[in-house]
Computed example of a mutant assay.
Amino acid sequence: MSRLGPVITLAAGAVLAAGLGVASITATPAADTTTAATEDNPAAEGSAAKENTAQPSPSPAESEEKRIEKADYAGRVKGNGALIAISIRDGKAIGYFCDGTTESWFKGTQSADEVSLKGLGAGKVTAALGGGRAKGWVSVGGKKWSFVAPTAEKPSGLYRASAIVRGAQFRAGWIRVKNPNGGYTTVGAANEGGSPVPVPELNGEQPTAPLTVGDTTIYPKDVDGFIEEMQ
């Protein structure tokens, strides 16, 4: 399977990459208000030394604690009926947004209690992590929505499949979310040769069970099976 960058199946066409401009800012040094040490004020020297003592850098162990080894979130996007999933493995993160027609993949990193992902063009996901959920914003196609995605336990979560079907590259993605009153909601989208096609239905009991598309058998994978390919 080849690396898959972020995809929005709004229409087949060319992808334009946006440039990133960096603005330079010149900071004016703050005035030095440290009291000078004199023979009449010897205590000031000790005070100044204490204030200027550099704080120790975080140890490797502390840095490791900020990186999440494994986490999965899946939930509903407010305002448009879409689902969103975010998965983190050893600080690397991917995300997927899908409403059944429009889809977008994202990738990025997790740091401390937040995650930041980028997709096609201005597509973006930012979320705060904590309390067993990811809460934030997703931008797709120039529109922006909020979401709350609780921790996902299988069979909830993110799934993906890729294969050559009828001589063209076939790709599909699914998000599966548990309903508050029981059962699951699954939303997905697929494209073949860059054009949208009907997405096959995941096996409700075993989402990674093989599926048939045309005369080809495809094998959906959970996030552990493809996250490295997305980076």
Rank of each mutant, 00 (worst) to 15 (best):
T126W: 05
Y73F: 15
T216R: 05
V140L: 07
P58C: 02
A190F: 04
L120I: 14
V187E: 05
R176L: 08
K50M: 06
N41H: 11
K107T: 08
G131K: 00
G136S: 02
A49S: 07
G131Y: 00
A134M: 02
G46N: 10
D40R: 10
T126K: 07
A161H: 01
E51D: 14
F226E: 01
L158F: 13
G81H: 02
V115Q: 00
L129A: 02
A48I: 07
S57K: 09
G131W: 00
S59L: 09
A149P: 06
I86V: 14
A43W: 14
A71K: 05
D222R: 03
G21P: 12
E153F: 02
E229Q: 12
S24P: 02
G121R: 15
T101L: 14
V165S: 07
Y73N: 01
A163D: 15
K135Q: 12
I227E: 12
L83A: 10
K154V: 13
A74G: 08
P56N: 09
A48C: 05
P220V: 04
E45S: 13
S162N: 10
V148Y: 05
V125G: 01
E39G: 15
Y184E: 02
D224T: 10
I227Y: 03
F147L: 03
T126Y: 11
L202S: 06
V148Q: 11
A17D: 00
G81T: 01
D32V: 15
N52T: 08
P207Y: 05
P56K: 02
P42G: 06
G225C: 00
P42A: 07
V197A: 04
T35E: 13
A168G: 04
K178E: 15
L4Q: 06
E103M: 12
K70R: 13
A37I: 06
T101E: 06
E39N: 11
A27R: 09
K154Q: 12
Y159F: 10
S47D: 15
P155E: 00
R160F: 13
A172V: 11
A209S: 14
I86L: 13
L211C: 06
M230N: 06
